[in-house]
């Protein structure tokens, strides 16, 4: 049996009176890519933000149920939020490097986790490893002092992933990471995801069904806050059990 990185149990989430997640129950397998698909507003991004508790920043959010990570409920009152977010990192929809140098972006995580050392060799080596891990080193090795916001969007998104890997997460949450990119860049990011899968558990939210089909091992389909169906990607796309899933993947909805 596969190991699970994240497990939700009777998860409900409310924005004020509006219920955005309804009794969501599923598990994310370790070192696999799990994708969540569904039409806009179905709650898939909200679900993603449950895992690193970014929803906490929204006013009036109420969550019931459990989300287990490393055998602990992350919504237990004694959760160390900073540690949790360090272990469960997030890649955002729009590439969002800071408007500072490429190098400074990479070492941002070091600074906030007090791992920054003033040694030039250490920092250079560090930048090299980080950029290699996202397949950017060859392109950027002579441009470390250039402004990160001048890179192409694909490079920016990869840099954001590098910035995230620096803090040594275990789970990567990706919130439509390719929606701002063209098809070729998208393919490159997907290639990178397959590379990252060896060491990280990945959960990706996407409105792009083909992408879910290409990259993920398991897929969940969400509609109006409910997880309608969850299972192996192949099965879900070829032989969906639920009529609503079938409607969506055959293009009759959304």
């Amino acid at each position: 049996m596969a190991e699970f990185a994240l497990t939700t149990k009777n998860l409900n989430l409310y924005y004020g009176r509006f219920q955005a997640l309804k009794d969501v129950q599923f598990s994310v397998a370790e070192k696999k890519i799990t994708s969540i698909i569904g039409p806009s507003g179905c709650g898939k991004s909200t679900l993603l933000r449950v895992f690193n508790r970014m929803n906490d920043l929204v006013e009036g959010v109420k969550i019931t149920g459990e989300v287990n990570f490393e055998n602990r409920n992350i919504y237990a009152p004694d959760t160390d939020l900073l540690k949790l977010r360090k272990k469960i990192g997030m890649v955002f929809q729009r590439p969002n490097p800071f408007p500072i140098s490429i190098f400074e972006n990479i070492v941002f995580g070091l600074k906030i986790h007090h791992l920054y050392r003033e040694s030039k060799e250490f920092l250079y080596k560090f930048a090299e490893e980080s950029l290699k891990s996202v397949l950017l080193w060859e392109d950027l090795k002579d441009k470390l002092n250039h402004l990160a916001t001048n890179l192409s969007l694909e490079q920016q998104q990869k840099l954001c992933i590098a910035r995230l890997l620096v803090v040594k997460p275990e789970v990567l949450l990706m919130d439509e990471p390719c929606s701002a990119l063209d098809p070729i860049s998208t393919a490159k990011i997907e290639e990178l995801m397959q590379e990252l899968k060896k060491n990280y558990t990945i959960v990706i939210v996407t409105h792009n069904m083909q992408q879910a089909g290409r990259v993920s091992d398991e897929t969940g389909y969400m509609l109006l806050g409910e997880l309608i169906e969850f299972g192996a990607t192949q099965t879900l796309f070829t032989a969906p059990r639920d009529k609503r899933t079938e409607d969506y993947i055959t293009g009759r909805l959304g």
């Binding site: 690193n52 969002n96 910035r163």
Partner: peptide
Amino acid sequence: AFREVSLSLGATKLQTIRHA
């Protein structure tokens, strides 16, 4: 987005203000 990224990387609020 800057604050969001910083917080999502495990920074405290104060660090986020200071660095991001």
